[in-house]
Amino acid sequence: MYIDVFFVMSGLFLIKGLMEKKKNPWVSVVSRYFRFIGSFSIIIFYVMFVSMYTGDGPLWQRFAGREQQKSEKSWLWAVLMLNNIIDSQFITPIVAWHIPCDYQLAVMGTLLYVLWTKNIRMAKFVTVLVSILSLIVPVFVTYWHQLPAMLLPDNIEKLFDFPTNEMFLKLYIKSYSRGVPYLIGMAMGYILVMYKPVNNRRILSKEWSIILLSAGYILVFKVPASASSWCHSNDVISPLLFVAFSKMMLSIAVCLIVGAVEYGSIDIIRRIASLHIITVLSRLTFGVFLTHALFIQQNTYSMRALMYHSVMTELTYASGVAVLSFTAAAFLWLFVEAPLNNIVNLVTSSRNNKVEEEIGDQEDKLIKNGKEKIIEGVQKRTTTINAYTKY
C-alpha cells in the first residue's frame, strides 16, 4: 500500500510545477517522458541482454531466463508507457508497472489542468466525474472478478512471479486503481500554490501541528496494519470498503503530514527535510526504485540453499540492497538522467523562448497598431474641431 505515497507526491509535484513554472503543459508531459525513459531503457536493455549472464544456480536458468523472455515480449509497450495495459503479464522487472501508471496519471492530471485554464465550469464537472470513477471502478473490478483486496501470493510460485496473480494484473497495476491518491496529491499541490508556505509559515499553532502530524502518522501505519482484518473478513462488504477507502485514508494522512510540516510550528522536521543530503538522495529515488528489484532477484534466483533468517541477517541484506541500489542509481543519474534532462530542458526552453518571442512580437504589433489608431483618431478629431472652429 505504501506505493500510494509516491502517487500522492507525484500528483502534488505535477500541479505545483504546472502552476508555478507557467510552462507549456504539453512540454512538461514530453519532458516527463524523457526523464523516465532514459534509466528505464537501460534497465530494459540489462534484463534483455545482460542479466542472464550475471548469475548461476539451480533456479537461475528457470527464473532469470523467464525474465529475459518477458522483456523481449514487452519492451515495446514498456517504452510506449503502456505495459501496465497491454501484455501486462510480461512486465519485468516487477516494479516496471509503476512508471507507465504514473505517466498515464500525469497525462490525466495535465488534461485536467488545461481544462481548468480554459473552461472552469466544464473542468469542475470533469474533475468530479473522474474522482467518482477513480473511487468506484476499483471496487467494481474487485467485486466483478472476485479479487482479494490486497496483493497476496496464492502459492510459492507466485511469490517469485507476481504477474501470474490475477489481482496484480486486473487491479494492482492499473492506473484507475491509483487515481484517488493522485487526485488527492493534486489537490494538496493546489493548496500549496494558492497558500504559499513561505507566506503562511507557522499559521498552525504548535499544538495543532502536533495533532495533525500525529494523526497523519497514525493513519499511515494504521491503515496498512488493519488490512488483514478487513481483507480476510467473511462478509463481502468489508474487502470492498477497504478497496474503496484505504487509499483515500492513506493519501489524506500523507497530506496531513505535509500540511503540518509546511504550515505548522515544528521546525525540526522541515530542517531535516531541507538538508542537502536529503535533496541529493531524493534525486536518486527513481533509480533506486528501478534497480532494487534487480538486486533482490539476483540474490533470490541464485540461491543454492535455504536462507537463514534473523534480525541481523535481514538488516544486513536490506542494507546491502540499499547501498547497491543507491550506487547504481547514482551512476544512472550522472550518466543517463542528468545529461538527458539537460538536453530536453535545452530543447524545450529554446522552443519556449521562440514562442515567447512570437507572442511578444504579436503583442508589440498590437500595441503599435493600437497606438497608430489612437494617433489617427486624435488627428481626425483635431481636424474636425479645427474645421468646426474655423466655420
Rank of each mutant, 00 (worst) to 15 (best):
E157A: 03
S131W: 14
M167E: 07
M150D: 04
I120S: 11
F6Q: 02
I42A: 12
W26E: 03
T92R: 10
A318H: 14
M307A: 08
L59M: 02
W75N: 04
E72T: 05
A305Q: 14
T327K: 05
L133R: 11
D87E: 15
K354Q: 02
Y301M: 13
I343Y: 10
V141S: 04
H292L: 10
W60L: 08
G370D: 01
L250E: 13
Y195D: 09
R304F: 10
A387G: 11
I91W: 06
E363L: 09
Y301F: 15
A149H: 01
I266S: 13
L256K: 00
L219R: 03
L147P: 01
I278L: 05
S228L: 07
N352D: 04
I237N: 12
A387N: 14
L366H: 12
V198K: 11
I91E: 00
L112T: 06
M194Y: 15
I94L: 15
R62I: 04
T110Q: 13
E262K: 11
I272L: 13
D102N: 05
L111D: 07
M188H: 14
F63L: 10
L324W: 04
F326D: 04
M19V: 10
H232G: 05
H98D: 02
M312A: 15
I203H: 14
N345P: 01
V236S: 13
V128C: 13
M248P: 11
F7A: 02
L250P: 06
E337I: 02
I184Y: 02
M48C: 09
L212H: 01
S349G: 07
W75Y: 04
F335H: 08
A225P: 09
V258T: 14
V180S: 07
R304T: 14
F335S: 05
S246T: 04
L290D: 07
A96C: 06
Q89C: 06
A215L: 15
V254N: 04
H232E: 05
K70S: 15
F13N: 08
V126T: 10
K158D: 09
S39H: 06
K174Q: 06
A149I: 11
E357A: 10
K247P: 05
Y391R: 13
F125D: 09
K174S: 00
E262S: 12
D364F: 03
M150E: 04
S205G: 15
M150S: 06
N345S: 01
P339T: 01
N155I: 02
I272F: 14
T54W: 10
F45K: 07
K118V: 11
L284H: 04
Y46T: 07
K16L: 07
K373G: 09
M167I: 04
V137F: 00
S233A: 12
F90G: 06
M188C: 15
